[in-house]
Amino acid sequence: MRADNDADRDALIEATASAFRERDASGRIVPSPAWRDLAPEDREAAFDHQIAARHVERALDPDGLSATARAVLLRARRLTQLVRGEQE
């Protein structure tokens, strides 16, 4: 998706605010496709937008966690269970 107008640009920036990230075959977290489509100056806007989004998420989450924190903690728990499963 490329930004042809302000609405597309805003939607692209919003897409980068999601904490969901794909992984490659090695398990590495890969950049958002929306981020790749942004112009350099819009990437700066996306950075500030992500910070604002995390503040809102923390305010709305009962545990005060951002979506980034929740995504990481979920992944960490899954990895730990995987390691324990392999050890048993």
Binding site: R21, V30, P31, S32, E44, Q50, A69, V72, R75
Partner: peptide, 16 residues
Amino acid sequence: FTRRVDVEAIVQEGLL
């Protein structure tokens, strides 16, 4: 690094 890396992906990788 904002213009050159997807900071969200780096933060998640670093925290993990």
